[in-house]
Simulated assay, not measured.
Amino acid sequence: MHVAIFSLLASPAVALPPAAESGPCSLDAAAPATVAAVDEDFELLLDDGRRAAISGLEFPPPAVAPQRDLRAAAHKRLSSWIVGRDVFVAAFGGATDRWGRMPARAYAPTGDGAASPIVSVGAALLEEGLARFRPDPSAAPCAADYRMAEATAREAARGLWAEPAARPVLAGEGAAAALQGRKGMTLLEGRITSVGETKATVYLNFGQKRADNASVVVLRRNLAILQASGIDPRTLVGRLVRVRGLVEAAFGPRIEISSPAEIEILEPAAP
């Protein structure tokens, strides 16, 4: 693992296409800024006094090795890339969060030359396996781009994806045992076998035994949000999906979702 982390630090950024000029996750509305420092929580401290947090990224936790070592690698990579450099920052929304940070997306050139392409900092860190996509509501415009970048690292078992705890848990038989004690964001992947409904909730079940197979919970008040994005939970029977969120264990392992950024449909509907 130490060898892999050393290689990660020594390697150049993974090649990404230049950032789009327009669209929901683009340079549009991004303004020049200079990064004075990246603090221990990965906040960008700008030289004009503002603090920005790159929305949609979950960095390795400051726990025991190897997570601690991966977190240090991610911090070193980000700091060495953007501190003291002019970047472009675009706020998600107009307000700071309760900690005084500006939820944002950031873009930076890949090199020192004037012709160096400008790429998404968040997508680069995801593609290098230094972070996972976290479905923050503010990052929803970048969800598709970030998930695509993350998939490249996950499929190559690059960076944090070399660790079994970071990879998706299969939601079929035995999922309860695999999910026991899970803390923080978990990725759950499986085929929906049935849909159940109550007055307040829609349940997407991965098997007949909810206590063993896991399920996805959608509160009815959030159905319209998913349907507006083209996702109707009631039509997902037989479909392979991946969800991400916090595991609740009180009524069998389940993950509640409330936005389209938290669920990926991994195959097309049957003709």
Rank of each mutant, 00 (worst) to 15 (best):
G49V: 03
A157Y: 13
P164K: 12
A65F: 06
G122R: 11
I82V: 09
A73W: 04
S229F: 10
L170K: 11
V241Y: 05
A165Y: 12
P109M: 02
P233D: 07
D212L: 03
A104M: 09
F6W: 10
L226C: 13
I118A: 02
H2C: 04
L9W: 06
A261S: 14
E128M: 11
L170R: 14
P141V: 07
V247F: 00
S229P: 13
A52W: 09
A91K: 10
A156K: 10
S120M: 04
S215Q: 01
A10I: 00
A53D: 10
F206E: 03
V169K: 04
Y203G: 13
P164W: 09
V14M: 06
M102H: 14
G56Y: 03
F42D: 05
A19V: 03
E267N: 15
G245C: 02
P268N: 12
F206A: 01
L236C: 09
T110M: 06
W81T: 07
K199D: 15
A74T: 03
A228L: 02
A166Y: 13
K199Y: 11
I257T: 05
D136S: 14
A157F: 15
A153Q: 07
W99A: 12
G129F: 12
R132D: 11
T235Y: 10
P18M: 06
E163T: 00
S259A: 15
D48W: 09
R191M: 06
L9H: 12
D47T: 13
A104R: 08
A29Q: 13
I257M: 05
S55Y: 01
F6R: 15
P109E: 01
A200N: 15
A106I: 05
R242C: 04
V195M: 00
F88Q: 10
V119W: 07
V195C: 03
P233L: 04
P253E: 02
G94T: 05
G129C: 10
R77I: 04
I225C: 07
R101E: 02
K76D: 13
A157G: 02
F42K: 03
D39P: 08
L130E: 04
E262H: 10
